[in-house]
C-alpha cells in the first residue's frame, strides 16, 4: 500500500480569480505583506501498489480525471509506503 498526495494547481499563466479574491480579503484583515495567493487542491490517494506502478497509476488518474489540462497542472508526493 502506498499513500500518495496529488496536488492540482492552475498553470502559471492561468488567471485565478479565487486566489485574487482571497488575497483582497487578506488585505482587509490588515496583512498587507501578503502579495500573492494561489488556490489549488490536493487528493490523498491510497494505492495498492508500490514503486513504478504507483507512478503509472498516478499519471493515468491525473491525466484522465483529476487534472483539467487546459488550465491545470499537477505534481505529487509519496507520503509513505506501508506493508
Amino acid at each position: 500500500m502506498t499513500n500518495v498526495r496529488i496536488f492540482v494547481t492552475y498553470k502559471q499563466s492561468v488567471f485565478d480569480p479565487q486566489g485574487e479574491t482571497i488575497k483582497d480579503a487578506i488585505h482587509t484583515l490588515g496583512h498587507d505583506e501578503v502579495t500573492a495567493v494561489k488556490v489549488g487542491k490536493f487528493f490523498d490517494v491510497t494505492i495498492d501498489a508500490t514503486g513504478a506502478a504507483v507512478d503509472q497509476s498516478v499519471k493515468e488518474i491525473a491525466d484522465q480525471l483529476l487534472v483539467n489540462f487546459n488550465m491545470e497542472t499537477y505534481h505529487y508526493q509519496v507520503l509513505e509506503e506501508a506493508e
Binding site: K11, S13, V14, F15, D16, P17, E20, T21, F69, N70, M71
Partner: peptide, 15 residues
C-alpha cells in the same frame, strides 16, 4: 493539436 490548448482565458464576472 493538444498544445494549442493553453490559449484559454478564465473569466471573472464580478470584475
Amino acid at each position: 493539436n493538444a498544445t494549442q490548448r493553453s490559449a484559454v482565458q478564465v473569466g471573472n464576472p464580478f470584475m
